[in-house]
């Protein structure tokens, strides 16, 4: 096909509609899943895709309860709660996992910022909980030793 202006514009439209189709979610009730952050292979990339270049402050007001030694990396119970007011998101990262972002949990106005979840850990690593409140970011870390990895391979 000759590259005329008309053809070029038609191609452009085809291309953009394909992208729109690929990223749109079938159920409207769900907000968009942050694919880039969840697929990032390094902690730095995952943090940047999720929060941009925003600064994250260490905080003692986040309670991260994780085992110091996890025998089985396939199931590591984690509990996070915080006293920080207006918390609207708690996210969990495992620094040395193949994809560090584990889960991002959003809270409504009437919810209590307190969660329990079971995660996978490939090897001994730091577990990081990041709290987003009033547009600011706070974090706390804990090292979890893993005896048997849980990410397969």
């Amino acid at each position: 096909m000759k590259l005329t202006r008309r053809n070029f514009i038609v191609d452009l439209l085809k291309g953009s509609s394909f992208i729109a189709l690929a990223t749109s979610f079938p159920t409207m009730a769900f907000a968009k899943w942050n694919e880039k952050a969840f697929k990032a292979k390094q902690l730095k990339q995952a943090l940047e895709s999720k929060y941009g270049k925003q600064q994250i402050v260490d905080s003692g007001d986040i309670l991260l309860k994780a085992p110091t030694i996890a025998e089985n990396g396939a199931v590591v119970p984690i509990r996070v709660s915080t006293n920080i007011a207006n918390t609207n998101n708690i996210s969990l990262f495992v620094k040395d996992n193949p994809t560090p972002l584990i889960a991002s949990l959003n809270f409504g106005e009437t919810s209590i910022p307190e969660i329990q979840i079971r995660i996978r850990m490939a090897k001994t690593s730091e577990v990081i909980a990041i709290v987003e409140a009033d547009g600011k970011l706070y974090q706390t870390k804990q090292l979890v030793k893993v005896t048997i990895g849980g990410c397969g391979g």
Binding site: A31, W33, N34, F38, A74, V75, V76, V94, N97, T99, P100, L101, I102, A103, S104, L105, N106, F107, G108, S111, I112, E114, I115, Q116, I117, R118, I119, R120, M121, G150, C151
Partner: peptide
């Protein structure tokens, strides 16, 4: 409550909120 999960969540996910 709304949660976004990656592949790092354990099999048969348990969640409390």
């Amino acid at each position: 409550f709304q949660a976004d999960f990656g592949p790092g969540v354990a099999k048969d996910p348990f969640l409390a909120f």
